[in-house]
Amino acid sequence: MSTTRRFREARAAYLFLAPAMLAYAVFQLYPLAQGLWLSLFQAGLTPERTFVGLRNFERLAVDERFRRALINTAFLVGGLVPLALTLSLGIALLVQPLAKRAQAFFRLAFYLPGVAGGVVLAMVWLWILNPTYGLLNSLLGAFGVRPVAWLGTTEWALPSLGMVVLTWILGQPIILFVAGLDSIPPELPEAARLDGAGPWALFRRVTLPMLRPTLLFVLVTQTIGAMQVFVVVHVMTRGGPANATQTIVYRIYETAFDFYEYGYASAMAVVLLALIAVVAVVQFRLLGQEIEH
C-alpha cells in the first residue's frame, strides 16, 4: 500500500519535472559538458577539431591580453563589491524606517535602472561621459574641474565603466537589506538599548549579525556579477583604450566571435568557471561558518 503510494508520488514528481529537466539537459547540461570538453581542442567555425590536451591553458598562462582581462576583472570585483555592499546597506538603513510611499519612491529610484538594462544605460552613459559635450564634464566644470576623457584614457576608462555598472546593481541588495531589517524582531534592539548600547554598538552587535544571511547572499551574487561584466565593455569601449577595459567575458566573446577560436574561448570560460566556483565556495565557507556562531 505505502510502497505503491510512494511509487505513485515519485512518478508524478518525475512527470512534473520532465519539461524543465529535459530542457535543462539539452540546452544547459549538454552545452556545459561540451564547453568543458571543447577547451581541450583546437576548434573553429569548421566542424573538424584537433585534440590539443592542455595546450589552450598553457597558452592562456602566457597570454598578455588575458592577463590584463584577469587583472581588470579583479579590479572591478575589488571596487564594485565593497561599494555595492556598503552603499546598499547604508541606503537600506535610511529607507527602512520610512513610510510605504517614500519607500516605493526610493525603490523606484534604485531598482528601475537595473530593470532598464545594461544596453540602454550604457548608451546614455556613452553620451554623459563624452569629453566635449557630456553632462559629467560640464557638471564638474562648474566646480572648476578640467574636462576628463573618461573613456579615452587608460587610467580612467576602467573606473568609469565600474561607476556605470554601480549605478544599476544597487536595487536588488537594497530590497533584500530592507526586508532583512524588517524581519529583525523589535525586542532585540530594545533590549540592547536598555543595556546601554549606543547606535554603533547596536549596529555591530544586533543589526549586522541578524543580517548575516542576507549579507552572504548579496556578497556572493555581487561578486559573481562583477566577474561577468560585459555589456558596458561591448557598448562603450570594446575593450580599449589599449586593452584597459578588457574583461574575462569580453575576451571570451572576442576570441569566439571575432577570431573564431572556439577551443581557446572555451578554455577561458573554464578558467572563469573555476574562479567563480572557488570564490563562491570560499565565501560560503567563511561567512557560512560565522552564521552558525
Binding site: F27, Q28, Y30, P31, L32, Q34, G35, L36, L38, V220, I224, M227, Q228, V249, I252, A256, Y262, A265, S266, A269, V270, L272, L273, I276, A277, A280
Partner: peptide
Amino acid sequence: ILPREVTLVPL
C-alpha cells in the same frame, strides 16, 4: 551560480 559563458559556444 555557474557562469553561462561556458555554455555559449557549444550552444
